[in-house]
Amino acid sequence: MPAYESPAESAQPTATGGEGVPVVHPLELTSGVVKLTRTLCDVPSVSGDESLIADLIETALRELGHLEVVRNANAIVARTTLGRAQRVVVAGHIDTVPIANNLPVRVVGEGAYRELWGRGTVDMKGGVAVQLALAAELVAPTRDVTWVFYDNEEVASTLNGLGRLSREAPELLHADFAVLCEPTAAGIEGGCNGTVRVHVRVPGETAHSARSWMGTNAIHAASEVLNRLAAYQPASIEVDGLVYREGMNAVGIRGGVAGNVIPDECVVTVNFRFAPSRSVAEAVDHVRSLFHGFEVTVDDAAPGARPGLDAPLAAEFTEAVLALTGGVPAPKYGWTDVARFAELGIPAVNFGPGDPLLAHKDNEHCPASQIEICYTALRAWLTA
């Protein structure tokens, strides 16, 4: 379809100034949730470089008189303090994976078929825009709300801003229920898979490549690791009524000393996505058993989260949202920070605009209608 820009959206929120310096305008939280999504996406915020977008969010929220605002590094927490019987956390991360020539955002199509194309439109600035628009609008929600905007979600779990908040200021996250605005195509996705990343080391012995028989080629020997992965049959495991699909994949490989040297080491990096019925320890044991005979070192790990849809507030939220959007709850295959809320004893669900199958892809794009649906559904529940 041809590109289309409405008059309200035709002005780019960011532009390139002298010597490549971005010119950034303040966030207009009441400009409309779709336009706000575009504005947020056009502010680059690759993991580790979120200070600019965090500054913009903090400034905009501090102008609202009904919220208490706290900043922790590049995470922003804004809370109502109305003394309601229940408190809900609504959270989203403000970082993205690296840009791939897919900014500034393009608007494609018209009317009900309008789409935003560009980095962050799916994962997950559409969800962040929903948060910000509602944070500005809902002066007196029927439940107290804690709006959380955090950094470094797309990198190692040790850097995660929500994890840092849970360690350094856990009182800011106290709640009866949490909604994580990760992309779900405007549906409800319960729980999440866990993740373990390991390095599988294959040893060899160096030699001159002209006399290769004097050594042992570690890269050649790594074929055994790859063969085991190719033969591996991932499981689909039902947990509390939702079926989670597991996966075990090589995601990196390194080896080699020089162009004329037989390599004495090859390391295959493997990522195991496991159902939330397994603990991290059980997942690591499973990986080690698959690569028995090789040295396996754990690089990163995070537990999954069971669906938790039977918790009263989770059930109430799910019923209210699905009454507007239709569909049935589904499992979240990727890892998300609902797992951190689960560790804190807070029931949580994933709910946000954007097809998760498009997350991190160069052609990332999101229907404007999904952003509007999520805004409408979350607003209805918080004001019911």
Rank of each mutant, 00 (worst) to 15 (best):
G127H: 08
D300S: 13
C374Y: 02
V77K: 05
D151G: 02
G326A: 00
S166P: 13
P13F: 14
A8P: 11
P7M: 06
E372Q: 06
R62C: 03
G334Y: 02
S157G: 11
I94D: 13
V43Y: 01
P347Y: 10
C374N: 03
R79C: 00
P263M: 06
H220T: 14
R79Y: 00
R201M: 10
T336M: 00
W335V: 06
D176Y: 09
V179T: 07
V139M: 12
V179L: 11
R62E: 08
A85G: 12
V21W: 14
G17I: 14
H220G: 03
R379A: 12
L52Y: 05
H292C: 05
N363S: 02
T376Y: 00
G241E: 06
F294W: 00
I53S: 09
T59H: 06
I188K: 00
G92T: 15
E265R: 14
A54D: 12
I253N: 03
A218R: 13
P7A: 06
G326C: 00
R228T: 12
N227K: 09
V200S: 13
D176I: 10
P312A: 12
V70G: 01
G32C: 12
W117R: 07
P141Y: 14
C366R: 03
A281D: 15
N102G: 01
G48T: 14
E58I: 04
G191N: 07
I237M: 03
T376L: 07
P347N: 05
P353E: 10
S289Q: 03
P170K: 06
G20A: 14
C366I: 01
T297G: 00
L357C: 02
K361P: 02
N260P: 04
P2E: 13
R254E: 10
L138F: 09
R164E: 15
T376A: 10
G32A: 08
P98K: 00
P22F: 12
S157P: 10
D151L: 07
P183L: 03
E364Y: 05
W147M: 08
E9Q: 10
E28K: 09
I237L: 03
P263T: 11
D176L: 10
G241K: 05
A281N: 09
V328S: 05
D264R: 00
T39C: 04
F317Y: 13
L322R: 09
L132N: 04
F351S: 09
L344G: 02
Q131R: 12
T146P: 00
A178W: 08
W213N: 13
P7I: 11
G18V: 14
N152Q: 11
V148S: 02
A342L: 02
V24L: 15
L229A: 14
V268R: 11
E115A: 08
T383V: 13
T81M: 05
G161I: 15
N102Y: 02
R340A: 09
G194H: 01
K332W: 02
W381K: 09
V267D: 13
L226D: 08
L180C: 07
T146H: 07
G109D: 02
V24E: 10
I188W: 04
G163E: 14
N227D: 15
E189D: 07
L138W: 10
P26I: 09
D299A: 11
L173V: 12
A91L: 13
V139F: 05
A136P: 01
P356T: 03
E168I: 13
Y375W: 10
V122N: 07
L132T: 11
G109T: 01
V298G: 08
A210C: 07
D55I: 10
F149E: 06
